[in-house]
């Protein structure tokens, strides 16, 4: 290629990336720097006249709370169980919907609408549905004879985590289904034709043709979902507010608590940074573990 041509390409690359880079660095990374600073200060809404540096005190205070172990365990449960079910159901749904059937558009609308509700709204809807006194889920189970006594889905620590995770699965399947369906549509039919000629069964087609082809999408959607579920306090906040007795707190609801009840932005930012560190470690591990699959999609 001639140098002139190369220059034009460079200009094209530069101009195409410019808006995205400006937006992200100007309005995400720049404000964050300040937020990170707050984590090392005594920064509480109750007294903003004295916001001196306190070193790692906020981190010590947050990690030193006796609940911290439960919170970490809940966070892990919340992310892993939600993710596994969201992915499995979403992928199954995408496969079933790939071939198309009459009314698929409408069907999609009705199974994907959950994605269009805010997490907080879903939280309060499910709080009502799961209510231990007047909730419709208890009523249905009683009428069906499955239970004889109402279950305190949100007031019994044994059930509370289960209930919020069910709501989260309900909410999040749509994302995987939409993204994987779009990816499935792009698998060239020649690949299936070739596999048909080779006499491959449905299952071996799935594992030898389909999944390898859409692997980049799977890998990046899974990584994103892990991060998003991790950073999704809205639903739990709306449903149980972290209760009963803190049994449904995850790191990010704990962070919200610090802001709403204590006004302690210093400690809240410290929790935020702990979240980022955990997620970065996850990402490094994830990229390392999936390198063999030639993902490299980040």
């Amino acid at each position: 290629m001639k140098p002139f041509r190369l220059n034009r390409t460079q200009t094209f690359i530069f101009l195409s990336l410019l808006p995205a880079v400006l937006l992200v660095f100007g309005f995400t990374y720049f404000p964050i720097l300040k937020g990170i600073d707050v984590a090392f200060r005594n920064y509480s809404l109750f007294n903003l006249t004295d916001v001196h540096y306190v070193g790692l005190d906020n981190f010590r205070a947050v990690m030193g709370t006796p609940q911290f172990g439960t919170i970490l365990k809940n966070t892990a449960l919340w992310v892993i169980i939600s993710l596994v079910f969201q992915f499995a159901i979403g992928f199954l749904l995408a496969l079933l919907m790939r071939k198309g059937f009459r009314g698929r558009g409408i069907y999609q609308g009705f199974v994907f609408y959950s994605w269009a509700l805010s997490g907080f709204l879903i939280g309060i809807i499910f709080r009502w549905l799961f209510n231990g006194q007047i909730g419709v889920i208890n009523d249905l189970l009683l009428n069906a004879g499955i239970i004889t006594e109402r279950i305190g889905f949100l007031s019994d620590p044994k059930w509370a985590m289960f209930s919020v995770i069910v709501a989260n699965i309900w909410y999040g399947v749509a994302f995987f289904a939409i993204m994987l369906l779009a990816a499935l549509q792009s698998v060239p039919s020649e690949l299936y034709e070739a596999a048909d000629i080779d006499g491959a069964s449905g299952f071996s087609q799935l594992f030898n043709v389909t999944i390898p082809y859409i692997m980049p999408t799977i890998l990046s959607t899974v990584a994103l979902r892990v991060i998003w579920i991790f950073n999704f306090p809205d639903l739990i906040y709306g449903m149980t507010n972290g209760g009963p007795a803190g049994s449904t707190h995850i790191l990010t609801t704990y962070m919200l608590d610090k802001i709403i009840f204590s006004g302690d932005y210093g400690q809240a930012s410290a929790i935020g940074i702990i979240c980022i560190i955990i997620l970065l470690l996850f990402l490094v591990f994830y990229m390392f573990a999936t390198k063999a699959e030639k993902a490299g999609d980040f």
């Binding site: 660095f25 990374y29 720049f30 964050i32 300040k34 990010t252 932005y265 980022i276 980040f298």
Partner: peptide, 21 residues
């Protein structure tokens, strides 16, 4: 690196730096 920078934005809880924003 740019892709990674984009990816990392997803990890940042919104409220950190919100007052600056």
């Amino acid at each position: 690196q740019l892709m990674l920078a984009f990816f990392i934005t997803q990890m940042i809880p919104l409220f950190i730096g919100f007052s600056t924003l």
